[in-house]
């Protein structure tokens, strides 16, 4: 909690920088995200899924320090580009240290320029929130939660692109 003020002001500054850079490049578009990384609590993330109605969410838990996670991120980017017109939203939830937002996470996200929204989980006590994502989760990353209308599928594993697309298809088949 005590990171919030710092993160907010850091975000403001970063947001301004990004807007500035984008305008300089002459690529301003209404949909272009002005915020690279949004810090959110787990309640905020889960609340968004719960309020998402028929949207299918693919929520990947990752960190800049996790090699298999970083290797897997392009698959989530590709999946989103391919599936966003079918009501699929991909959220990349970083479990990096919230203190490393400006130093590590934001530069990483800027460099990679992935399309899905990146959230930095603003929590410091993993044992309090891991079970709320899924009781079967050991806490190892990467891990992915598929969510739609209260229905959920949790996978503690890393995917190839084909495996990821297959999981999503199977999950969407189960939808009413």
């Amino acid at each position: 909690m005590r990171f919030v003020p710092r993160i907010n002001s850091a975000l403001l500054i970063m947001g301004c920088l990004v807007v500035h850079t984008i305008s300089l490049a002459g690529q301003v578009s209404a949909s272009a995200s002005t915020v690279l990384v949004t810090p959110q609590t787990l309640d905020e993330v889960m609340g968004r899924l719960a309020a998402g109605g028929d949207t299918t969410y693919v929520v990947n838990f990752w960190a800049t320090w996790c090699k298999p996670c970083v290797a897997e991120l392009p698959h989530f980017d590709k999946l989103y580009r391919e599936q966003r017109d079918s009501g699929v939203v991909v959220l990349l939830v970083s479990v990096d240290d919230p203190k490393e937002l400006t130093k590590k996470v934001a530069p990483f996200v800027r460099r990679k320029a992935y399309l899905p929204q990146v959230v930095l989980l603003n929590e410091s006590k993993p044992h309090e929130w891991i079970d709320r994502v899924d009781p079967t989760w050991s806490g190892a990353i990467p891990a992915t939660l598929f969510f739609r209308n209260g229905r959920r599928l949790f996978r503690e594993t890393e995917f190839t692109f084909e495996e990821l697309r297959h999981e999503l298809k199977e999950f969407m088949k189960g939808s009413p």
């Binding site: 298999p68 891991i130 079970d131 989760w137 806490g139 503690e156």
Partner: peptide
């Protein structure tokens, strides 16, 4: 028991 973030084995 408690849980924690970590690297997969």
């Amino acid at each position: 028991t408690t849980k924690a973030i970590g690297c997969t084995i």
